[in-house]
Design a protein around this nucleic acid. Structure first.
Length: 114
DNA sequence: CTGATGACGGCGC
DNA sequence: TGCGCCGCCATCA
């Protein structure tokens, strides 16, 4: 591997972070942004998801910070995401998922000044 | 350049 | 838990 920092555009790193989500595990937009090295860029993650048409991308494992589906309740995307999550064994109640608490270190990183 | 928009997020009530 | 307000960012009209 090259000893230098990974090239990758922000978009590439975000997509990589999403692909890295194990089956049956979920994460918020903010956490994905953190893992991509882009603290506070949750909205960028959302835009990428809506724009990319990459096949096989586990987009359904990305939820809002409060554990709810980002799509409007009742919409086609909303139902599709719930279906996919439940197919992986994720418990979804009324469009909401129990997210594991964010670690203090990540919490600090999120609030750290840029 | 200005204002609106969105698969967001934190905070207050 | 629910709802509204505001901040932040990239894109678009």
């Amino acid at each position: 591997m090259s000893p230098v920092a990974p090239p990758a555009t922000p978009e590439q790193r975000i997509l990589a972070a999403i692909r890295a989500l194990p089956r049956g595990q979920v994460a918020s937009y903010g956490v994905i942004a953190l893992r991509a090295g882009l603290p506070g860029r949750a909205r960028l993650v959302a835009r990428i998801l809506g724009h990319t048409g990459e096949a096989g991308l586990p987009w359904h494992r990305v939820l809002r910070a409060d554990g709810r589906i980002a799509f409007p309740a009742g919409s086609a995307g909303w139902e599709e995401q719930i279906r996919r999550l439940q197919a992986e064994g994720v418990q979804v109640h009324n469009g909401r998922v129990r997210l594991p608490p964010v670690e203090a270190s990540l919490d600090a990183a999120l609030w750290a000044p840029r």
